[in-house]
Lab assay of single mutants.
Amino acid sequence: MATGGRRGAAAAPLLVAVAALLLGAAGHLYPGEVCPGMDIRNNLTRLHELENCSVIEGHLQILLMFKTRPEDFRDLSFPKLIMITDYLLLFRVYGLESLKDLFPNLTVIRGSRLFFNYALVIFEMVHLKELGLYNLMNITRGSVRIEKNNELCYLATIDWSRILDSVEDNYIVLNKDDNEECGDICPGTAKGKTNCPATVINGQFVERCWTHSHCQKVCPTICKSHGCTAEGLCCHSECLGNCSQPDDPTKCVACRNFYLDGRCVETCPPPYYHFQDWRCVNFSFCQDLHHKCKNSRRQGCHQYVIHNNKCIPECPSGYTMNSSNLLCTPCLGPCPKVCHLLEGEKTIDSVTSAQELRGCTVINGSLIINIRGGNNLAAELEANLGLIEEISGYLKIRRSYALVSLSFFRKLRLIRGETLEIGNYSFYALDNQNLRQLWDWSKHNLTITQGKLFFHYNPKLCLSEIHKMEEVSGTKGRQERNDIALKTNGDQASCENELLKFSYIRTSFDKI
């Protein structure tokens, strides 16, 4: 039985969820670079991206490699990797027998973001014989899940209580170790020597080791999670996991709180800001991140802002960003909400898709409305799209047979046209069989910064309504002859009103 693990408890099935942008060198404390989270699957090609990484700022997932063999891993080693800020997950990587050479110096898994409450997941690794993470000293947050690894031993010899604050939620089941077939031998045991430290858990006094050649490092209890030197002297209180010299914040392997210019500090002093819960960055760093993602459509890219001495992905609820200094300031009234469309555009074809934009005031991208039916549609669209004030790209209304009016965009005031449909149009209306009105132009103002209007096959939309939009939106004169079809717009509506004058002759039985 794995020490510190839980057996036999019912657990939810383990679901495996399925960018080499360097964020800056980590400095003297770390020998390499800070790398983003990685999802490495199918083959070993991307694994080489770990070569210079000291910190993975995010998670590391290595999974679904069915053609790899043990010899493929023999020359692979990433000794610079010290810390993973989120979680480490391995799933069905064939041929991998140990992690001792792959990650010989991995010391800390912070667990800032977890995989279903777990910071370390080893699942269905069919050839893994031992973990071998002999320098792993601290899992700051989260638990361990090690399950269905039929060859995995050296679990009962690990004292997880020396690595985690609590072992109650560890789930370590259905491994070879369960069948008591392992016969784990710690260093020196074969020669009758006791080389590794022994600890007591559940009444068992057991030597602690990761492999037959690597003991588990056990520091004096007084050192807590700070770690200790090879001689057993406690590291500085700002260290986490390990250090090369005692009581020196510049000799830590990793930091308990924050890293700044080669030393570990309790908090980031001005003019620095907390970033990702582990390091200090200056304003320029946060500003660069903001600008890199301002026009990016890459998933996970955030326009970072500053709030409460932190550089964070977005302002919290009730705050909006001051564009001059990136500071989050309290909103006066309802907060603006910028919604970034991942692929640059979004099609609204149902109430469900409209709900995804609920509360958005600025759309960074283009909207395509293609709704053919739905219950209580006008009210639903207004509830979900009615706060949109600005669209950076274009607005396209296409084959939306259920629409009679666009009044559900009740606050839309600006279409920038930074991206144009077919390279020309910022407003595009095609084949809307029941569209009769755009907006009530006596109450609604709309500016279209650039781009043209396109109207074709809107049989109940009168040309007068379209011409009014040209005047109000500032697009009059931009359109070419064929942009607004004269014969297919309003051709099934009563669009022309003329005053009919009647004269009559009164007659009676005795007068003409």
Rank of each mutant, 00 (worst) to 15 (best):
V305F: 09
F258Q: 13
N295Y: 13
L29H: 09
Y94L: 15
G203D: 10
R297N: 11
E266W: 15
E130F: 12
E71A: 14
L29W: 11
P79Y: 04
E130W: 04
D247L: 07
T229R: 06
M137N: 11
C196N: 03
C182G: 05
C264F: 01
I185E: 04
Y30D: 09
G333L: 02
N325C: 11
Q287A: 15
K224Y: 15
Y87A: 02
R113T: 10
L332Q: 13
L106W: 01
G227T: 09
P334S: 13
S225K: 08
I158W: 04
C209N: 06
E57R: 02
G95H: 15
C228I: 03
E181P: 04
P197Y: 09
E97L: 06
T329P: 02
N295P: 04
I84G: 00
H290E: 02
W278V: 05
V253Q: 03
C153H: 04
D277F: 05
T85F: 02
R279G: 14
N135S: 07
I222E: 13
E266V: 13
T140I: 09
V108T: 13
N138S: 14
W160L: 06
E124C: 04
C223F: 08
H214K: 01
C243H: 00
C286Q: 03
P313S: 11
A230R: 01
P313Q: 04
Q287P: 12
K80N: 13
V121L: 03
Q216F: 08
T320Q: 05
A230L: 03
T140H: 07
T157Y: 07
R298I: 10
Q299E: 06
G318E: 08
V108P: 00
L152C: 15
L76Q: 06
G37F: 07
G192W: 08
T189L: 09
L76K: 15
D159V: 07
K176T: 15
N308A: 06
A230K: 14
G183H: 07
N202S: 11
G142V: 01
L63S: 13
F116G: 13
K224H: 04
P330W: 07
I201R: 07
L76T: 02
H302M: 07
G111N: 00
C243A: 00
T229E: 06
I62K: 00
L106C: 00
W160I: 02
N257E: 09
W278S: 08
Q216I: 03
D178E: 11
F73T: 03
N308R: 12
N105L: 02
W160N: 01
E130R: 04
M125Q: 06
Q216T: 11
V34M: 11
F66K: 13
C255A: 01
D75C: 07
N52T: 14
L99Q: 00
L44A: 12
T157A: 08
S166H: 08
P316R: 09
E130P: 01
S284E: 15
L164C: 06
P79R: 07
P104C: 01
C223A: 06
G183P: 10
Y272K: 05
D248F: 02
D247R: 12
S244R: 13
L88N: 01
L128P: 01
H291P: 01
H236V: 02
E130Y: 13
T68S: 11
S54V: 10
N202W: 10
D248P: 01
W160D: 01
L174M: 13
G333T: 05
G333V: 03
N309P: 03
D248E: 05
D178P: 05
V206T: 15
I84Y: 00
G132D: 04
N202R: 06
T107R: 03
C315F: 03
C234E: 02
T107F: 05
A190K: 06
G183N: 05
L76H: 13
N179R: 14
